[in-house]
Each structure stands twice: as structure tokens, then as C-alpha cells.
Amino acid sequence: MSTSAPPATAAAPGEGRRPRRSRLGRRVPPVVWFFLLVPLAVELFWVFWPALNSFWLSTTTWGGVGVAEPVGTANYERLLADPIFRTALWNNVLWVFGFGGLSVVGGLALAVALNQPRRFVGVYRTVIFLPMVISMAVTGLFWRIVYAPGGPVNNTLELVGLGHLQQQWLANPDTALGAVLVAAVWRQVGYIMVLYLAGLKGCDPSLEEAAAVDGANAWQRFWRVVMPQLAGVNTVIFAITVIDSLRTFDIVWVMTRGGPFNQSQLLSTYMFEQAFSYVNLGYASAIAVVIFALAILFIITYVARQARAEEDDL
């Protein structure tokens, strides 16, 4: 494994600045080690230690008190045969694409639109961010009212002549997951927008001006000039989106609790139910390990490739 490209070989093609750069990066001063190791130690202690405990618990049966009973791979075998787990897994795959895709597209569009010096953009930005500061309990209540029989969604359908589509959105097993997804995207968009806004601040406006002078239209400028500059932010947002898709919990819990009859269950809600409603901590830990493995699968492959591509560009 080669993390640091050996400066001696100077294999990277044609970058005249390389000697200077490696002088900056090569020698690692002690204080920099301090910068890195203090946060790392804190995280190792408060996250990795308990996480290893959870990994170990996934091979046991444990009700929160007393001695955990080792059961080998029994929890994982049970997962394979568990119909609720299969539903949750499939829902979660849909969720990663639906929730992730829509919130990134929406967040990016809003960030680009609101990154301009126009009137009221500050007001718009604040309004779109505001849902994040309202407590989850009343947010869930709001969405239950929105989807209720006789609620705004059904009334709007009636109004535009689509009355036959009216239904109890959250009580219908076919629509519950989609209905929750809309609410989750609605909440997530503001968050993605904030990160993209911060990323857009790092873009060099002179490049876009130059492209404009060259006759590129807004669409071309965005994709050819702005997007490449957002590469680092995109990586970050990709990781965040995958993590959040796999960990989405609150909004589902307050709107449907995975119901009706587990049809809107996600891995995280099912895990929570097993861990805290039923106190099956061994089984819940096994679900958590699956979530972890999925996240690794999605992220590490992508992000690691990204990071390697950047590696020579220190």
C-alpha cells in the first residue's frame, strides 16, 4: 500500500511545482502530529471502542442486563430468514437512490439559484433552512396532518380534478414509504443547499467570467466550469448522502414507525425497534453491522477512488 508517492521518483507527469509542494508536505512537524492524534484519540475512544462492542454484541443474544450469551452467527442467519429485514433492506436501497438523488439535485439547484446577489436571496435561504430547527415531533405531526384524509394533499388533488387519487397516504402500504420520502427530502434539501453554498464560495468567479466571454451559456458554464471546481464538495456530499440515507431514522419514526405492517420500515428503524422496543441488542447489533457494511460498500469504494485520484495533487 502506497499512501505517499515517493518524491524521489517524481513520477507524476509535468507539474513544475512538485518540488515545492513536496517540501511543504514531506516533513511532518510534531505539532501537526498533535493536531491529528488528539482528535483521533477522542474518536477512537468514544466511537470505535463502543462500535467494537456492538460488533461483538452482534454475535450474542443480550437483553441489556446480565451476561451476553454467545451465539456465533445465529443473528446473521436469522436476518436472512427475516421477512421484515428483507423489506427494510429493499426499502433502504430504494431510499438511498430516491432520498439521496432528490435531495442532492434539489439542494444543488437551490444553492446555485441562491448564490446570486439578488434581492431576497437571504430570506429565501433562511426559509429553506428553517425546517431543520423545528423539533422532529411537531414536524412529524405536521406531515401526518398534510397526508391525512381531508388534509392539504387530498384537498389539492380534489381541487385539480384528481379526486380519485385521494387516499390515506401514510396508512396505505403502497404509498407510505413514498410519502415519508417526500418529507425527508424536504427536510434534507436545506442541509445540502448550505454545504453547496459553502462550496460555491470556493469557486473562482474569474473562470466563469472567462467562459462567459468565450460565449458559453449558463448551462455549459455550470457543468464545465463550476462543477469541476466542486469536485471536493461533491465527494463530501456523496458521503453525507449515503450516510444519511442509511441512517434516516427520526422522520420515519415520527411519521409511520415503519408501518403499516412494516411496509415503510428502513434498516435503521427496524434496528431501533429491535434494540429499544424489544431490547434484542444482539440482533439489533447485527442489523447495525449490515448498515455499516452497506455504507462501507457505497462510500469507501467511491471516496477512496476519489482520494487516490487527488493523491498526486497535494
Binding site: P39, E43, V47, S285, A288, I291
Partner: peptide, 12 residues
């Protein structure tokens, strides 16, 4: 360090 955030917090 990122991997530490991939595990659902509830289980910790």
C-alpha cells in the same frame, strides 16, 4: 475516521 460515522449512532 469517516468509518466511525457509518455505524448508526443508536447502536452505540
Amino acid at each position: 475516521m469517516l468509518a466511525g460515522n457509518l455505524l448508526p449512532p443508536q447502536i452505540l
